[in-house]
Write a protein that binds this DNA or RNA. Structure first.
Lengths: 114, 114
DNA sequence: ACAACACATAAGCCATGGCTTATGTGTTGC
DNA sequence: GCAACACATAAGCCATGGCTTATGTGTTGT
């Protein structure tokens, strides 16, 4: 069922990993976590051309990590929290190998849900 | 301090993201979580040539996600749990944006440590 | 010692990806 | 309407990456 949902959304963890593999894209994403920003702003922060930034944003958008909204002649981009979910899910699948801290977290969750 | 350690280890989250970006590499990694395996075994499981598998393993090894050990004429590969830590750290940094479930986990941790 | 096995590495090929410049699409203000 | 701004998209270039075949390095067994 979760699988079906993922397929319908068209996003397995594949797109997310792919999107976050690039350092510039991660930097842009991190920058957006500090608040909504226009393409112009991001272009100013990083030493990238405007098309480069737009292309990175398109990739992040395709991975569901980011959303956009028009405001006047600017396009504001913001982080889409749920976009990280596939990554969290993937990692959670290997929680057996995590460090003590995360292991403790999982144990807590189990106890909570019981 | 954590930063210094990362630099000394020579591994920011960069190598890990890079290594996990490839589907074949993730598949190999996932396969290894089910237990130690030789290159020959992995080559048999996936439809990849032996050199391809070796190269993927070398990349995973470089990212600290996997370790190797000689046993006779085979080289056994196993998952290195701590290798996922940079990824967990990176995601944890954006925990503010996580879904309710993870948010609940974090709140639990905070209460626990207090 | 030699053949067979298991693996790593080298070299080359081809697809992909990220960047650039150039151009198209909206939107604002005069 | 028109110029200026903000952004998206197209086209092309070049580096990178993943795969292949071919070859080198160890290890086992006879």
């Amino acid at each position: 069922m979760a699988y079906v949902l993922r397929v319908l959304q068209g996003s397995t963890e594949d797109t997310v990993f792919q999107a976050l593999a690039d350092p510039s894209r991660r930097a842009i994403f991190e920058s957006l976590t500090r608040g909504e920003a226009a393409v112009k702003d991001l272009t100013a922060r990083f030493e990238l051309s405007q098309p480069a930034v737009s292309q990175h944003l398109a990739t992040l958008r395709g991975a569901g990590l980011v959303e956009s909204r028009r405001e006047g002649r600017c396009v504001m981009y913001r982080v889409e929290p749920r976009g990280l979910q596939p990554l969290v899910d993937w990692i959670t699948h290997y929680r057996a190998f995590w460090t003590d801290r995360v292991g403790r977290l999982e144990r807590l969750l189990t106890e909570l849900e019981r």
